[in-house]
Write a protein that binds this DNA or RNA. Structure first.
Lengths: 170, 170
DNA sequence: ACCTGAACACCGTTCAAGT
DNA sequence: ACCTGAACACCGTTCAAGT
């Protein structure tokens, strides 16, 4: 069932019709909505695994290697992940500001994981101190949004690389 | 009538209900849709004046002063304008890639105006040559989107300033 | 010519009725 | 307990009928 939902979301984007998802999962709309009362709840169930992996990845990168390279690599993976899931970035950014959202906790965890990598790089003098974790999350989200727009994927990747390296090496 | 539409769009955002707009304008939905067959057509009618002003502003800034400062100032005004009109940035980015859209011509004109300012700064050695007009439009759009997200307005402004100055002074 | 109510096919929310 | 058809209030599209 979650598999079907994942397929539909991948095909139609994060704003696919809940009715359509239920239909293709072979259940009534009301049943789907009883399991996942809101779209965010469904997204959370679908993204939880990837979120946890990204958080663990941040921890791993924080234990070894260059702080600067670790941060850059993680940011790149974060953008790639978000771009893979068309349309979710708006939900994640909104969820950060909405404690009631089903996605809130996961997004805060991701935020914290990124902030820790940033703090390590800052402590090593390899990242500027005038940006914080929230800035990082916002920057990554903005480029993830750009990558979601038609024909902007490669441009978003290139510009993100250009911007991060420009900011880091001031 | 356009005034009412502008009010509703300002209140509800660019994805306000066309039915609601017609209702508040005191006309039938079908009548509104006959004048503006698509949402983009309505947006175009509402934004045309501002678009023309921004284009003229680019021309004016291109005739005088420092190329670099002119470019930066125009970019700032562009972001401010887009942020003022909640939700339009997605439409403008989409319109650039869709020649059939009612917004296409206006967006291409804006794109060209920005590209000209960039070219002047590049010719003066005051802007990097590894970004082009499309990159500029994409960057500005990404930060305009960020500014549209709840509680991210000031962050978007600050980050945009930080990013542009970091890129320009590499 | 210009307008528009109404039918249509969609959407998410809610709940009474079914197992 | 768990499910779901159906009613509800919305949406944009389309068109026959009204001035």
């Amino acid at each position: 069932m979650l598999v079907v939902a994942g397929t539909v979301l991948a095909e139609e984007g994060a704003d696919a019709s809940m009715r359509d998802i239920a239909r293709r999962a072979g259940m009534g709309l009301a049943t789907l909505l009883r399991h996942f009362p809101t779209r965010d709840a469904l997204l959370e169930a679908l993204l939880r695994t990837s979120f946890d992996e990204l958080t663990a990845r941040a921890d791993a990168l924080g234990d070894t290697g260059s702080p600067r390279d670790g941060l850059l690599l993680w940011l790149r993976e974060f953008v790639a992940f978000t771009t893979e899931h068309y349309g979710v970035v708006t939900s994640t950014v909104k969820a950060i500001e909405e404690p009631g959202s089903a996605l809130h906790d996961s997004c805060v965890a991701l935020h914290a994981a990124g902030a820790q990598l940033l703090a390590r790089a800052q402590a090593a003098g390899e990242a500027p101190v005038d940006v914080d974790g929230a800035d990082l999350f916002a920057l990554v989200s903005a480029f993830a949004w750009l990558g979601d727009q038609t024909r902007q994927e490669q441009r978003a990747e290139r510009l993100f690389g250009l911007v991060t390296s420009a900011i880091l090496s001031r």
